[in-house]
Nucleic acid binder design. Structure first.
Length: 282
DNA sequence: AGGTTGACCTGGACGC
DNA sequence: TGCGTCCAGGTCAACC
């Protein structure tokens, strides 16, 4: 489910709760497709590491890991330049929760990180589209594309130059811009007054500027409201977001436009359900 | 090479 | 109540 605002909400919530904690034990479920890195490697990188912080990169949650120096430890030399990150991609139904160890394990729990203070970080994912991995490269994980919340209008506009794909499909392509998903693609296109099927390369300079502004406003407001809770999304504390109340088109197929009362249209673009207003979006 | 489609999973909603 | 069908916030491999 989760797109940029939901992933950011979860990452911030987990960060507040576990920053500075040490991971003492790791359990994984053994469901092969959940693990992008071998489970043994995940356990090795995480066990004994201290959580330096948790943040969002694209649609991934990145946990930065450190290793305290131990003078007697033969590995201390390499631990000094230890670069470890734990990456959590929530897929459609993934949840990352921080709970006391005594809370019963939910069905479809695929990983549990036991913390030194007795709490646990748990990854739960019924549909198993989520992915867990570790990165130990010095540079760390930068994500597949450009960060939409901070990109300037010039760079943003340049991303779509010469592209024949529909602007909606381009917004969803994570190697172009990372973090935008189906909800915020539709919502930002509505607010910019742009038809989702318009070829990305054919947008005028003015349209690109409008879209850039609309996207950043929509994302900022959604982050402020804790994301959109459609069906089962909750943050690290199990709390729902409120941006779904602001949706103008997403999930409103069959209803009328809130601005002009024209019937909204439902089509498929880039393989995804797309809702738009045929009058407001040219 | 860029663009499009289907496969991957489970569960909830809805119709009969 | 129960069964079948459809749909879902995301990727990615395999095709055209």
């Amino acid at each position: 489910m989760p797109e940029l605002p939901e992933v950011e909400t979860v990452a911030n919530g987990v960060n507040e709760r576990v920053r500075g904690q040490r991971i003492v034990r790791v359990w994984t479920s053994g469901k092969p497709q959940t693990f992008k890195s071998p489970e043994s490697e995940i356990a090795e990188v995480l066990t004994g590491a201290t959580i330096e912080g948790v943040r969002r990169v694209g649609k991934s949650i990145v946990m930065d890991l450190g290793r305290g120096k131990k003078k007697q430890d033969l590995r201390s030399a390499q631990d000094d330049n230890f670069h470890g990150q734990f990456l959590v991609h929530l897929g459609m139904t993934g949840r990352l929760l921080v709970t006391p160890a005594e809370v019963p394990m939910a069905a479809h729990t695929h990983a549990v990180l036991s913390l030194a203070d007795g709490r646990e970080v748990r990854f739960v994912d019924p549909r198993r589209f989520g992915r867990l991995s570790v990165v130990t490269d010095e540079g760390g994980y930068a994500g597949p594309g450009v960060e939409p919340t901070t990109v300037g209008v010039e760079e943003f506009s340049g991303l779509f130059k010469g592209r024949k794909i529909a602007i909606k499909a381009a917004l969803l392509n994570q190697s172009i811009l990372h973090g935008v998903g189906n909800i915020y693609a539709d919502e930002s296109l509505f607010r910019a007054g742009i038809r989702p099927t318009k070829p990305a390369g054919k947008l005028t300079k003015a349209e690109l500027a409008k879209l850039h502004k609309a996207l950043q406003q929509v994302l900022a407001k959604a982050i402020k409201l804790g994301g959109s809770s459609v069906s089962d999304y909750v943050d690290a504390a199990g709390v729902k977001g409120f941006f779904q109340l602001e949706h103008k088109v997403y999930g409103r197929a069959g209803e009328v436009c809130k601005d002009c009362a024209t019937a909204l249209k439902k089509i498929v673009v880039g393989g995804r359900t797309t809702v738009y207003c045929p009058r407001c979006q040219k």
